[in-house]
Amino acid sequence: MAAEPESEEMPTSAGEGAGDGASIPDTESIDDEGYVIGSGRAGVVRQIDHDDFDPIGTLVLIAIYMAIVGAMWIFMYFVEFLGGDLTVIG
């Protein structure tokens, strides 16, 4: 879907490395008294561009979701159509 090279399109706001917003405290510590909401980008340790990004973790999560949906589908077939009496409706 990438029709253009993205690296040239880097916006001014994306910033480099750890940080857009110079005045946001860059909290590296785990016990984080000074952490400001919304400064997730302060923890960025490397820049990954479009062509270097392979969303394999997304594939894993969606595969897990599909497996759950499929299993629930089969579960529903046994419970509702083969195992149960009439269900009260209306």
Partner: peptide, 17 residues
């Protein structure tokens, strides 16, 4: 002065595509 970092970075795949 600076209550929050309110910048929104540009998408990886831009609207020009």
């Amino acid at each position: 002065d600076t209550p929050v970092d309110d910048t929104i970075p540009a998408p990886l795949s831009p609207p020009s595509g």
